[in-house]
Amino acid sequence: MTDEAHPHHHDAIILPGDRRIRLPGGIYTFVFVVLALLTLIEIFLAGMPEGPARVLVLFGIAIGKAALVVIYYMHLKDDRRIFAWTLLVPLIFATLGGFFLLLSPVPYST
């Protein structure tokens, strides 16, 4: 693999609108900052009153954080497509299985 395959060597991050910021560690540090901010938001939301909206937003943020780690830290963005499938297929099976167990009616009660 050549150096060009590692765009993260440069500290510059290109933001929407073609703006650039420089950060030691480049995109990795940027993602870390985003992850930390999202976590703070999550912790704040955890204190909010109960309700389906809160649950949905919390899970949405968690999935977003997980996706950031997988895409940037585990390099799914630049790596071979088959690695993405290797992760996605079990995730789909696990999610379907999980929701089956969560949603299927319980034929008995304790």
């Binding site: 999550e42 939301l45 809160r54 649950v55 968690a62 954080k65 997980a66 780690v69 997988v70 830290y73």
Partner: peptide
Amino acid sequence: VDVVWILLFTLIYLV
């Protein structure tokens, strides 16, 4: 392992 914790943290402690 970090990703798993991100999900566990939200599911067990926050939701």
